[in-house]
């Protein structure tokens, strides 16, 4: 299957408690190869961006296996703490994706996301996180190709930065 298996396995809806335990540290893309591969956590809303990723898979379009998707009911559900936690537990980059403004399944959820992450994104940069390690995207359920493109570009950007040390808390 073109869709990365571990990404699919992690795509099940997670509870908050599960997300905070050991989500990002499991062996993945770098297992066995000895070369470093970036680990990227993508928080995708169930209705658009996750469907977009799904469409990429069913259309047999390949996107980097570095992306591990965490499916959330709405991008408005993404607490900034989740982003920090992902970095703490070993993510080298974090992506937030939701429905295009105006298309939210819950009408207005992504408008809140937009405000919140406009502020958070600038702030993460301000405290010294490299701006290329965090990004936000609007990806609809029909944009399988955009998901693939975004995943590729983001992965390459993060790869060129090397492993993230900031906030990292792994043994």
């Amino acid at each position: 299957m073109p869709v990365n298996e571990s990404a699919a396995a992690e795509a099940e809806m997670m509870t908050e408690a599960e997300m905070t335990t050991d989500g990002a540290s499991g062996a993945g893309a770098d297992a066995g190869t000895g070369t470093w591969e970036p680990r990227i956590v993508a928080f995708c809303c169930n209705w658009c961006s996750y469907a977009g990723a799904d469409l990429a898979g069913t259309s047999r379009k390949q996107y980097p296996a570095n992306i591990r998707i965490v499916r959330v009911p709405c991008s408005g559900r993404i607490n900034p703490q989740y982003i920090l936690r992902a970095f703490q537990r070993g993510a080298d980059g974090v992506m937030v994706a939701g429905c295009h403004p105006g298309d939210c399944h819950y009408t207005t959820g992504n408008y809140y996301t937009r405000r919140r992450f406009s502020v958070v994104q600038r702030f993460l940069e301000y405290v010294g996180l490299h701006p290329d390690r965090f990004s936000g995207h609007w990806i609809s359920g029909s944009e399988g190709e955009k998901f693939v493109q975004t995943a590729r570009e983001f992965t390459e950007k993060v790869r060129s930065l090397g492993p993230n040390e900031k906030m990292r808390d792994v043994l």
Binding site: G102, Y111, R115, F117
Partner: peptide, 15 residues
């Protein structure tokens, strides 16, 4: 709080 409100014309940093 401005963060519990929204406006369709808000600036957009998402791509």
């Amino acid at each position: 709080s401005p963060l519990v409100m929204w406006d369709p014309k808000d600036a957009d940093s998402f791509e």
